[in-house]
């Protein structure tokens, strides 16, 4: 089936099998391997991307369900060469060790901050509660998200706007 998905502002048209999962479409067809593929059972959250404006576990979505829609992956977090505050927060606060969970953690964190620019530690933990990290013990992840909240981009509304397809 022919599908067209706008990934990080770029249109991608491909002929895919309906059974192709969104995570494999992004990694193997579009070639964006920043989205990780972990448990394959919708538990770990390593595969979280945005479908339109909402985070989804892309191992549990079909690529055909994204036809005509926009997807934002970790590669789409930075803008004009500037890292997103969330990415900078993870660097500043040592929010990762092996980095496997990091793309998913960052996508959900960006979503949280767009809706709630000043989240409490509890709100951060709740937002990330469907995502597993086996390295950090979560403390530094929470600090990283708080860092991003305290250091928003100059134009913080810009981060929530998708580049619209031509």
């Amino acid at each position: 089936m022919m599908i067209t998905v706008t990934v990080n502002g770029e249109r991608h048209s491909h002929d895919v099998e309906p059974r192709l999962l969104l995570v494999h479409f992004l990694r193997d067809v579009v070639g964006l391997t920043g989205t990780h593929w972990g448990c394959d059972t919708s538990n770990c959250g390593a595969c979280v991307v945005w479908l339109d404006d909402t985070p989804v576990k892309s191992c549990t979505a079909l690529a055909v369900m994204a036809d005509g829609r926009t997807v934002r992956t970790v590669e789409g977090l930075e803008r004009d060469g500037e890292l997103d505050p969330v990415q900078r927060g993870f660097m500043e606060c040592h929010g990762l060790q092996c980095g496997f969970c990091t793309p998913g953690m960052m996508m959900t964190s960006r979503w949280l901050l767009d809706r709630n620019p000043d989240p409490s530690e509890e709100e951060i933990r709740e937002a990330l509660s469907g995502q597993l990290c086996r390295c950090t013990g979560y403390e530094n992840i929470v600090r990283s998200v708080r860092w991003a909240a305290e250091n928003p981009a100059d134009d913080s509304t810009e981060a929530s706007q998708e580049v619209s397809p031509s």
Binding site: S42, G45, P55, V56, K57
Partner: peptide
Amino acid sequence: IADPVVRNF
């Protein structure tokens, strides 16, 4: 029920 990301879908 589940977690916030699953609840989105």
